[in-house]
Design a protein around this nucleic acid. Structure first.
Lengths: 338, 338
DNA sequence: ATGAAAGCGCTAACAC
DNA sequence: GTGTTAGCGCTTTCAT
């Protein structure tokens, strides 16, 4: 069931069918109606492969995330898809489970599919992408940093603002023994958060104890290990941190879970603050105080960056490539125990 | 950079390049090497659209989920993708956010993309799919039930087994006032779980109080509302349920959260059991006792059902289209308070 | 074993 | 405003 079949039945040329289906204005309404009737009647759907072959474009964007099973990402994917649908774009998803090989493969497959752009939401620009000569012709959008390339852009996230608020909040609650569980430090975005923590602590004139900053991996298991480690390291309760800031919410969940294991009450014995504000955060027990980084907004920014690069005819004005963060007060923080 | 360019540089015909790239055995190793060299050197990637156009197949499977932001689904998607990558298939994801219109649109887009099959993981066969005449030529796999169609198949899930265990577990803990928070009852899979609850209760000879079964919607908010409702309905504590079985884990999270709000301790004052065993379940406070339905296994079954329909040449033997469930004991259940 | 050429379904340039 | 037609990049007969 192809365009020729429709043309024959509607007694017009294939060109007219094509024009009708694509909404070219210069078609006689009479003919158009005739064509649409046949199209609907027969249930004709144009073949995307043929379209893509001739146009060179696919109306498809790739989106690469590090771990779809981390609740932070589904929100992004959902928002990205919502906008994509609105703009009649398709999405090709890849969850790389943090495997560079997998990442490379994903890129290759996306190139083969001739995607019109790809959003790389891995929070750390992998070289796999910058090295591939093919990508030089495909619009790419990264988070935090991008290769120095005409077609690539990146979203700038202001981690500092929210983290500054978090530390100020803790300080106002009289906490001075503040720990930080970072993400994997080979990840640029994790490094930025770490830096922001250091900066904010300095601003509040609170000493950073080296043993209080431990490297996590942005997973719940990592969060559990981190607090376990912290607790084991300081047998004397009075020397332990009274608050811990986590590089993401999953880590915070792990920390809270380990606190439960240790018989520590949150926030009475320990205050914890997360980062991301995943939807789940408000449903934790107690509800998690966390730094919000809007996943919806992030997806929107990424999509529009891609769209304006892929389809210059699009009139939507490009929004700022900038994302703010801010603290959301909930119940996992409280006054420092003395 | 197309096949002709490669052919020219390798001084062979385009046919030979095609054969080489596709691993057709009848190519002189000498020529093959020459071709590969050029291919790699220039970084040539065959154009999928052209391939799809001529072959009529796309090596792409669609996967439709109800809500990617429900942590149950990312696990499925990740597993599905893992297998897809292994088999050199691509996936087109759609999260319908339970909107039938959206579902319809998704199907349409997938047809246009000429997917080789689609896994409909919405746990309730929408008519949108059965009505579309086009789908009659595309392999489809559903959960729980499928239209009576040659190309469609479905995965049978044995809800009863796990739920039976759950109720038996509660009974052994002396609970008799057991509530059930169902999913949306227009969803076949939610209805099946509900039925399984009724059956299991009958088997244990425990009376089902009508006011103890409340309809939820498989969200955390729904879980909160459900317990709120239950509590409001029974001002006298002694009349309240001492245990609640939830139709999915998200609901259980909501229930636990509301219990916290109400000052109820779990499991001392209230036992709760979930369903699905999402990864998060073991990280909840307390860790959630729940009925496990393997997301990985589900994805595998779905993929293989599709694969064997789409590519009969594939030799992998089709696994059973059947999925068991079983109870995982954790710490959200305890003896009934008296 | 290799090459020449037809054609997959569609769009766009061009002619009318 | 509509039709004719030449490809888009690839696979696949069919010759050789």
């Amino acid at each position: 069931l192809n365009i020729r079949e429709i043309a024959k039945r509607a007694k017009v040329s294939t060109a007219t069918v094509s024009r009708t289906v694509n909404g070219t204005p210069s078609v006689d309404p009479k003919l158009a109606r005739r064509v649409w009737k046949v199209v609907n009647q027969l249930g004709y759907y144009p073949n995307t492969h043929a379209r893509g072959l001739v146009s060179g474009r696919s109306r498809t964007f790739g989106i690469i995330v590090s771990e779809i099973t981390n609740p932070f990402f589904p929100e992004i994917v959902q928002s990205f898809e919502n906008i994509a649908v609105q703009h009649n774009y398709e999405i090709l998803l890849t969850s790389t489970i943090n495997d560079p090989e997998r990442m490379k493969l994903a890129v290759r497959r996306m190139i083969e599919r001739r995607v019109d752009g790809v959003a790389v939401m891995t929070f750390g620009m992998e070289e796999a992408l910058t090295s591939d000569p093919h990508l030089r012709s495909t619009p790419l959008v990264f988070v935090d940093q991008s290769p120095d390339d005409e077609r690539s852009s990146h979203l700038h996230i202001d981690y500092l603002h929210g983290i500054r608020q978090a530390i100020a909040h803790l300080a106002s609650l009289s906490h001075t023994r503040i720990a930080f569980v970072s993400g994997p430090l080979n990840l640029p975005s994790a490094r930025e958060r770490h830096q922001a923590f250091l900066t904010a602590m300095r601003e509040q004139a609170i000493r950073v104890q080296p043993e209080f900053v431990v490297e996590g991996d942005h997973t719940m298991e990592g969060g559990m290990r981190a607090l376990q480690h912290l607790a084991a390291h300081f047998p004397h309760r009075v020397l332990r941190p009274t608050a811990v800031l986590c590089s993401n919410d999953m880590t915070a969940i792990g920390v809270m879970r380990q606190a439960y294991e240790l018989g520590l009450n949150i926030p009475r014995d320990l205050s914890v603050i997360g980062f991301d504000d995943i939807r789940l955060a408000r449903f934790l027990i107690p509800p998690l105080t966390t730094v919000q980084m809007s996943q919806t907004r992030l997806a929107e920014l990424a999509f529009h960056a891609l769209l304006s690069a892929a389809d210059p005819s699009d009139d939507t004005p490009a929004p700022e490539h900038r994302l703010e963060t801010c603290l959301i007060y909930r119940r996992s923080t409280g006054p420092a125990p003395k």
